[in-house]
Design a binder for these strands. Sequence first.
DNA 1: TTTTGTGCAAAGTATTTGCAGCGAA
DNA 2: TTCGCTGCAAATACTTTGCACAAAA
Lengths: 154, 154
Amino acid sequence: MESRIERIKKQLHNANYKLTPQREATVRVLLEHEEAHLSAEDVYLLVKEKAPEIGLATVYRTLELLTELKVVDKINFGDGVSRFDLRQEGAAHFHHHLVCIECGAVDEIQEDLLGDVEQIVEDRWNFQIKDHRLTFHGICWRCSGEAAEDAERT
Amino acid sequence: MESRIERIKKQLHNANYKLTPQREATVRVLLEHEEAHLSAEDVYLLVKEKAPEIGLATVYRTLELLTELKVVDKINFGDGVSRFDLRQEGAAHFHHHLVCIECGAVDEIQEDLLGDVEQIVEDRWNFQIKDHRLTFHGICWRCSGEAAEDAERT
DNA sequence: TTTTGTGCAAAGTATTTGCAGCGAA
DNA sequence: TTCGCTGCAAATACTTTGCACAAAA
């Protein structure tokens, strides 16, 4: 079977771009940290471990390119930085996120929960949906578990 | 009946803050541009028309304060700036947005369409939802209308 | 040789912070 | 007088850009 990186290489070629060593290193970092929601700086530091000559600007340019090709999605959780998430292969839509306001953890929901809602929006607002962003802010199971334990102790 | 600005004043006082002239001017600008999704810079320029002495830093500080008090919600549509939306009084949740990728218009959906989805997330992921952000990117009715007209002409 | 991609440094934006002065309590 | 608030300027943080050079087609 064809590897994920091979398929990304083809996507680049189809759009007339090359998979240069720098781009490959960047993509590999993203593949190795699938659910990490890395910022450009995070990616840069990780890529630098394997390919120390790489420049930060190249990482930014690569991430921008991958965003254009919809290999990754760019997302912003409200701290000042953009984060980059690999899109699941074949996923019609970007996945959802759960951001914990206690511990800062970000969990992913791969299932598409918006089918019905999107139908309503398309019909009622006459809006052709191409993409979406859905993020819930609240308290994750780890933190509410801890709170329960704390209560028990007292 | 008590005015909206009066109620905001009370909210400030309850949290031990004053409604200074600068803060009042800022709030008034927000009230007068309810659906405009203003950036801090936008607010600053509008406030300056009424109160030219005001500084940009004060606007940033005021918007931060209002965000803390949940008078406004801070949102980011993926261009590098934060935008500030007055929260509807009594609204349990932040409203949703439709961002047009053709013309850049941002429309609001005040209805809460996420009730069922939130129930699923709370149950299935054991996550206590406190707030949400939902934005659809696509083509608005104005732009798809124009496209249809363009097609007719040819 | 033409084009594409890269690293570095500089430039841009957006936002935050330090600080001296001001004004209300 | 005290303390919160402000304006200004400087600092910071993130991202983009210009440019000379390198690599690939």
